[in-house]
Amino acid sequence: MSEHGPQPVERHLPTQEARDLLTLVREVIAREITPHASTQEAEGTFPRDLFRLLSQSGLLALPYSEEFGGGEQPYEVYLQVLEELAAARLTVGLGVSVHTLACHALAHHGTKEQRTEHLAAMLTGGTLGAYCLSEPTSGSDAASLRARAVRDGDDWVLNGTKAWITHGGIADFYTVLARTGPDGPRGITAFLVPSDAEGLSAAVPERKMGMNGSPTAQVHLDDVRVPDERRVGEEGQGFTIAMDALESGRLGIAACAVGVAQAALDLGLAYTAERQQFGRPLADFQGLRFMLADMATQIEAGRALYLAAARLRDAGEPFSQQAAMAKLFCTDAAMRVTTDTVQLLGGYGYTTDFPAERYMREAKVLQIVEGTNQVQRMVIARHLAGSPGR
C-alpha cells in the first residue's frame, strides 16, 4: 500500500480570498510536497528550493502587513495553512512557523526604517529565517541566557552559543537574543544578524529522532559585529519581544500538531478500510472503530482550541493562556493519535514502508519545542492561580 496524502479537511474560512489561498496551498502541496515527503525525510533532505517558491508565492508572509509584502491574513487563516502544510510534511509546516517566528521581532517591534530596509526581503525575497533564543544551558529558563552583546561605538559585538536552532546553518538571517545588561529578563536585547556576518558559524546538525530533513544546529557567535541599526527594540526589551513572539509561535506549533495528527488519522482510516482480517475490513471491528472515533475527536477538539485562540489574537484580545492551552493539548493529542495509528497498522506501523512511524517520531518533538508542555502547564496555572507565593 502506498503512502496516503492528507484528505481535504472541510474548512470554514472568513473570506473568498482565504478560500482561494487554501486552493493555492493545496495545489502546491499536491505538486511539490506530498510526492517527495517520505523520500526526502528518509534522506534528510531540506527542500530549500521549495521554501524559495513558498516565499515568492507569499506563503512565508501570510500574517504580516501588505505594506511590506505580507499577505495581511488573520491568524485564523494563517494557522489553517500551516496545518495543511504540516499534514503533508512537518519539515515544511514547522519551517514556515519558525520563519514567521524569526520575522516577528522586526515586524512588530522594529522601527519604520528597519522594516522598510529589511522586512520585504525577509517576507517575499526568497530568504529564510531562524530564531535564536535557547542555549546549551538555557532552555526552559530562557531569562538565564549567557550569550552577550557588548557595545563598541556604533556597533555591538556578540559572543556565545545558541542551541537547538531550526534552520541553523542554512538560514539567511537570525533573530538573536543576547544579554546586554544584568542577569534576568531585563538585561536581554534582540538583534537581527545576517548569516554572512563574520564570526557567525553553525555546528554539525543534531542527529534527531525525527524531522531528519529539518536541520537543527548550534549557532556560534565569535566576535560577531552588528551595527546598532540592527538592534530590534530598546536595550533590555529583548525578553519581552521574545515572549511576545513565542505566544504566537505556540499557536503555529499547535496547528502543525493537528496537521500531523490529521495525516496519521487519514492513514489509519485508509489502512483499516483496505486491510482484511477474518474475512472483513479492519474498520468493521468495533474496537478499532472506537479508536478511530477517539482520534478524530481529539483532532477536532485541538483544531477548535487553536482557532479559538487565533480569533482572540485577531481581535486584539489577550491570548497567552489560550495559546499555551492549544500548544499543550494539540501536541499531546498528536502524540496519542500517531501512537494509535502505529497500533492500528500493527507490524506494518513499525516499518518504514508506511509513514505512521514517521508521524509518531515527528509528533514527539512538538511536545518539546517552543516551550515544553511542562512549561505550558506553568503558564496556564499562572494565569489561573497567579504566581506561587503571591
Rank of each mutant, 00 (worst) to 15 (best):
A257Y: 00
G259S: 05
F290E: 10
R390L: 15
V226M: 08
E370R: 09
G213A: 11
A333G: 09
V98R: 08
A42K: 11
G184D: 06
L90M: 08
P388S: 14
E27L: 10
S65G: 02
E206Y: 12
P8K: 12
A171Q: 10
K327S: 13
A105P: 13
G126H: 08
D266N: 12
L101E: 10
P8H: 08
T341R: 04
Q321Y: 02
S195T: 13
L282S: 07
M295N: 02
E198S: 14
P205S: 07
R250Y: 01
L265C: 07
M295Y: 00
L328D: 10
E76R: 11
V224S: 06
T34Y: 05
L345D: 06
L119G: 07
G95S: 11
K364A: 15
V98I: 13
V224E: 02
A333F: 12
H108R: 14
T166I: 10
L292E: 09
L50G: 07
Q367F: 01
R151D: 07
T339G: 12
P355M: 08
A255C: 09
D154A: 14
A86Y: 00
R19A: 13
S138M: 12
V77A: 07
A356P: 03
L158V: 11
Q262F: 02
H109P: 01
M1I: 07
N373K: 13
E76T: 15
A102W: 11
L305P: 00
A178R: 02
A261C: 01
L292M: 13
M378F: 06
K364F: 11
S57I: 05
G249Y: 06
A202Q: 11
P6D: 02
A149D: 13
L267I: 09
L384S: 13
Q298E: 14
A142Q: 15
G302I: 06
Q367H: 08
I165T: 05
L344T: 04
A356F: 03
P194F: 07
D294R: 13
G70A: 00
Q80F: 03
V176H: 10
I29T: 03
M211K: 14
G58H: 02
V224C: 08
Q322A: 15
V77Y: 01
L305V: 01
L345C: 04
H220E: 00
P281F: 04
S55P: 10
L85C: 03
H36G: 00
P388W: 11
W156S: 01
Q286K: 13
V232T: 04
V157C: 03
R52T: 12
R361Q: 12
H36S: 09
S2M: 14
F285T: 05
F173L: 06
D49Q: 08
H220N: 10
D244I: 08
H220L: 15
A283E: 15
S134V: 13
T111C: 01
F354H: 11
A86L: 05
L246Y: 08
D155H: 15
A37W: 08
P205L: 03
L128E: 04
P14K: 10
M360V: 09
V28C: 01
V337N: 09
E3N: 11
A88V: 02
T34V: 14
I253S: 08
L119I: 03
D332V: 06
G249N: 05
R313L: 09
D183C: 00
E362A: 10
D228N: 09
A61M: 00
Q277R: 14
L85M: 11
T15P: 07
P194C: 08
G213Q: 01
G168T: 01
A310S: 07
Q80I: 03
A245F: 05
S138E: 04
D294W: 14
T338Q: 09
